[in-house]
Measured scan of single mutants.
Amino acid sequence: TGIVNVSSSLNVRSSASTSSKVIGSLSGNTKVTIVGEEGAFYKIEYKGSHGYVAAEYI
C-alpha cells in the first residue's frame, strides 16, 4: 500500500512507460494497493484492473 504524493493529480497509465496511454488519474493523498514494480513504475490495483504510476510519486 502506498499514498499518492502529489499536489494536483497523478496519471495512471496502461503500461510502465511515460509514452503509454493515460487511463485515468489519482488525486494527492489517495491510498493505492501496489501489486508489482517495473522499473520506475509501480503496478497498482485500479478500477477492478491494473494500472501503472510513477514510483517517485508514491
Rank of each mutant, 00 (worst) to 15 (best):
Thr1Cys: 15
Thr1Ile: 14
Thr1Val: 13
Thr1Asn: 09
Gly2Ala: 07
Ile3Arg: 10
Ile3Lys: 07
Ile3Gly: 04
Ile3Glu: 05
Val4Thr: 07
Val4Met: 05
Val4Lys: 04
Val4Arg: 04
Val4His: 03
Val4Gly: 04
Val4Asp: 03
Val4Pro: 04
Asn5Glu: 06
Asn5Val: 11
Asn5Pro: 04
Asn5Cys: 15
Asn5Ala: 09
Asn5His: 09
Asn5Trp: 10
Val6Ile: 13
Val6Leu: 09
Val6Phe: 08
Val6Glu: 06
Val6His: 10
Val6Ser: 13
Ser7Ile: 11
Ser7Cys: 15
Ser7Asn: 10
Ser7Asp: 10
Ser7Trp: 09
Ser7Gln: 11
Ser8Glu: 11
Ser8Ala: 10
Ser8Cys: 15
Ser8Tyr: 13
Ser9Met: 12
Ser9Tyr: 13
Ser9Leu: 11
Ser9Pro: 11
Ser9Trp: 13
Leu10Asp: 01
Leu10Thr: 08
Leu10Trp: 03
Leu10Val: 15
Leu10Lys: 02
Asn11Cys: 15
Asn11Gly: 08
Val12Arg: 03
Val12Asn: 00
Val12Lys: 01
Val12Leu: 03
Val12Ile: 08
Val12Gln: 00
Arg13Ile: 06
Arg13Asp: 01
Arg13Asn: 08
Arg13Phe: 15
Ser14Arg: 11
Ser14Lys: 12
Ser15Val: 06
Ser15Asn: 09
Ser15Phe: 08
Ser15Gly: 12
Ser15Pro: 01
Ser15Thr: 10
Ser15Tyr: 08
Ser15Leu: 09
Ala16Gly: 05
Ala16Val: 05
Ala16Thr: 06
Ala16Arg: 05
Ala16Lys: 03
Ala16Phe: 04
Ser17Trp: 05
Ser17Asp: 12
Ser17Pro: 01
Ser17Gln: 07
Thr18Asn: 13
Thr18Gln: 12
Thr18Ser: 13
Thr18Val: 12
Thr18Met: 14
Ser19Gly: 10
Ser19Asp: 13
Ser19Cys: 13
Ser20His: 04
Ser20Glu: 03
Ser20Asn: 03
Ser20Val: 04
Ser20Pro: 01
Lys21Ala: 12
Lys21Ser: 11
Lys21Gln: 11
Lys21Thr: 11
Lys21His: 10
Lys21Gly: 08
Lys21Arg: 12
Val22Asp: 03
Val22Trp: 06
Val22Ile: 14
Val22Leu: 07
Val22Ser: 06
Ile23Tyr: 02
Ile23Asp: 01
Ile23Gln: 02
Gly24Tyr: 04
Gly24Trp: 05
Gly24Val: 03
Gly24Thr: 02
Gly24Pro: 01
Gly24Leu: 03
Ser25Met: 14
Ser25Tyr: 14
Ser25Ile: 15
Ser25Gly: 06
Ser25Val: 15
Leu26Asn: 00
Leu26Trp: 03
Leu26Phe: 04
Leu26Ile: 12
Ser27Lys: 14
Ser27His: 10
Ser27Leu: 14
Ser27Arg: 14
Ser27Ile: 11
Gly28Lys: 14
Gly28Glu: 08
Gly28Asp: 08
Gly28Trp: 13
Gly28His: 14
Asn29Pro: 06
Asn29Lys: 10
Asn29Gly: 15
Asn29Leu: 11
Asn29Tyr: 14
Asn29Gln: 11
Asn29Glu: 07
Thr30Arg: 06
Thr30His: 07
Thr30Trp: 07
Lys31Met: 13
Lys31Gly: 05
Lys31Thr: 12
Lys31Pro: 09
Lys31Arg: 14
Lys31Tyr: 12
Val32Gly: 02
Val32Ser: 00
Val32Gln: 00
Val32Glu: 00
Val32Trp: 03
Val32Met: 03
Val32Asp: 00
Thr33Asp: 05
Thr33Pro: 03
Thr33Cys: 14
Ile34Arg: 01
Ile34Ser: 01
Ile34Val: 06
Ile34Thr: 00
Ile34Phe: 03
Val35Gln: 05
Val35Gly: 01
Val35Ser: 04
Val35Trp: 07
Val35Phe: 07
Val35Cys: 09
Gly36Met: 06
Gly36Glu: 06
Gly36His: 06
Gly36Val: 04
Gly36Ser: 08
Glu37Tyr: 14
Glu37Ile: 15
Glu37Phe: 14
Glu37Ser: 14
Glu37Met: 15
Glu38Gly: 03
Glu38Leu: 07
Glu38Ala: 07
Glu38Val: 10
Glu38Thr: 07
Glu38Ser: 08
Gly39Val: 03
Gly39Phe: 05
Gly39Tyr: 05
Ala40Leu: 11
Ala40Met: 11
Phe41Val: 02
Phe41Thr: 02
Phe41Cys: 04
Phe41His: 03
Phe41Asn: 02
Phe41Arg: 01
Tyr42Arg: 02
Tyr42Ala: 03
Tyr42Leu: 09
Tyr42Gly: 01
Tyr42Met: 06
Tyr42Trp: 05
Tyr42Val: 06
Lys43Gln: 07
Lys43Trp: 05
Lys43Gly: 01
Ile44Thr: 00
Ile44Leu: 02
Ile44His: 01
Ile44Ser: 00
Glu45Ala: 09
Glu45Gly: 04
Glu45Phe: 08
Glu45Asp: 07
Tyr46Trp: 11
Tyr46Thr: 00
Tyr46Cys: 03
Lys47Ala: 11
Lys47Cys: 14
Lys47Trp: 07
Lys47Val: 05
Gly48Ile: 03
Gly48Cys: 07
Gly48Phe: 06
Gly48His: 06
Gly48Pro: 03
Ser49Thr: 12
Ser49Glu: 08
Ser49Leu: 10
Ser49Cys: 09
Ser49Gln: 12
Ser49Arg: 12
His50Gln: 06
His50Ile: 14
His50Asp: 05
His50Glu: 06
Gly51Ser: 02
Gly51Asn: 01
Gly51Lys: 02
Gly51Thr: 01
Tyr52Val: 01
Val53Ile: 07
Val53Glu: 00
Val53Ser: 01
Val53His: 00
Val53Lys: 00
Val53Phe: 03
Val53Gln: 00
Val53Asp: 00
Ala54Gly: 07
Ala54Lys: 13
Ala55Ile: 14
Ala55Glu: 04
Ala55Asn: 06
Ala55Gly: 05
Ala55Ser: 13
Ala55Lys: 15
Glu56Ser: 09
Glu56Lys: 14
Glu56Tyr: 10
Glu56Pro: 05
Tyr57Asn: 07
Tyr57Gly: 09
Tyr57Arg: 06
Tyr57Ser: 08
Ile58Cys: 03
Ile58Gln: 02
Ile58Asn: 02
Ile58Phe: 05
Ile58Ala: 01
Ile58Asp: 01
Ile58Lys: 02
